[in-house]
Structures are given as C-alpha cells and as structure tokens.
Simulated assay, not measured.
Amino acid sequence: MIDVSLVLLKHRRILLDELIGLTGLNREVLLGKLKKIKEYVRIDDDEVVIVKPLDLAIHLLKQGLSVKEISRYIDWSDFEKVSAEILNAHKYFVKTNFRLTKPVKLEIDVIGVDPRSGRGLFIDCKHWSRGIHRSALVEIVDKHVNRIEKFIKYYRWARDKWVYFKYLREIIPVIITLTTPSLRYYKNTLIVSIQEFNQVLLDLYTVLDLFNIEPYRLDVK
C-alpha cells in the first residue's frame, strides 16, 4: 500500500478521490490518516493540499522513512522557502535566488541580512538521496566559499542589485541540509540541518564562538 504522505509530497495537491484511488484506502480511513498530519496539509472542498512539504518530510524521517525515498519528492526550493521564512521571523531582510551575471557569474540560494549588526548569512541549500560523506561536504563548502569570495571581490557590481546590501558588513556562509550533517563547520562555514536552523539563529553568537568561525569581512568603502 502506498504511503499517503509520500503521495502528497509527490503531487503537492490532489483530489480526495484520486488519493483514495492511489492509496487503496477507503474515505473514512484516509480522512483519519490526513487528520494525523493536519499541521502539514489542508483540505479545500475535495482537494488535499500540502502546505508544509519540508516539515512533512522531516516528520516522515522521524517516523523512520528513508532519506532516499523522501528526497525524491523534495528539492532545493523547499529548503529555500523554509530558510527564508525562518530568516524573516528573525527580522532579517531576505533575498532568494540572487544572481550576478557580470563581470562574473554567481548565484546564492538565500541571502539574509540583519540591518542591526550588518551580518549577512549566505545560504546554499542542499539535499541528498543518501548520507553524505565528509569529503563531499568539504567539496560543497569549497564551492560555496568560492562564490562568497567572488561576491566580495566584485561587490561594487553586486551592491546595486538589492537595496538591503547597504546594511551588509560581514558574511557568514551557511550550508543547509535535510539531515544532520557529519561535518559541522569548515572554512568559516556553518553546516546545519533545516531542523536546527531556527535554534542556530537564536544562539548565533554562541555557535560562532563554539566553532571559532570568523565572518568574511566586506570592504564597503
């Protein structure tokens, strides 16, 4: 029997009758299962809509479903949306899908700028279908740091692309993953799971001190 939550993750919105057909459950049993995950879905008339796909994915991981199975139905945009929501809740200005096309090309998934401290979090959202080796994480961080260094070098071209860059004074690179990473920091870059991200922001100064992370300074002259 197909898992109801996995069907919802795949389709994101689906008619109740279609869901009954795909899962093989009768209406009463299906509604009972939907009630158990009501914080992640809503029912509009006869249509079931998933409203928090990444939260549902994390819930399924905790229930014992495999990362490989779940990651088939989520992507970087789910991480991007949740990361942006968390940053907004902490009063960061947020930019998603930042792109610079000249004089060099670079792209940052999510940028959060705290106007009070001048701190910027430059986030790369990643998910994998299986556990990630330490060496692969190192390679991912190296590429992200390279983007940050390009951004700093060509900042005078980037700063006019978003009005809130005027507050930016320093940059902390962050990698956000679905599951708890095996490597927590490397090259002044934080590596955290999406589940931990809110708490990391609450305790950011402590976390930076714990891992001896020095933000990348930005020359704004």
Rank of each mutant, 00 (worst) to 15 (best):
V110I: 12
F98M: 10
Y92G: 06
R119K: 13
W128Y: 15
I70A: 02
F93V: 04
I70G: 00
G120T: 01
I123N: 10
D124Y: 04
A89E: 15
K81R: 09
I132R: 03
D78F: 15
L121I: 06
S71M: 14
V104I: 10
P115M: 02
K95M: 14
R119S: 14
S77R: 13
T101V: 11
F122K: 04
S129R: 13
V104G: 05
P103S: 04
V82F: 11
N97T: 04
N97G: 11
S129T: 07
K105I: 12
H127P: 00
S83K: 02
K91L: 09
L106E: 07
R72L: 15
K102V: 08
D75K: 07
I74L: 07
H127I: 01
V94C: 15
S129I: 03
I123V: 14
Y73N: 06
R116K: 06
D109A: 02
T96V: 12
F122S: 04
W76H: 11
K105C: 05
V82T: 09
V110E: 08
R119G: 13
H90V: 01
I70Q: 01
I108W: 09
V110S: 09
E80S: 13
E69R: 15
V110Q: 05
G112Q: 00
A89G: 14
F79N: 06
A84W: 06
R130N: 10
I74D: 03
R99G: 00
S83A: 15
Y73C: 04
D75G: 12
K102F: 06
C125D: 14
V82H: 05
F79Y: 14
L121Y: 03
G131L: 11
N88C: 08
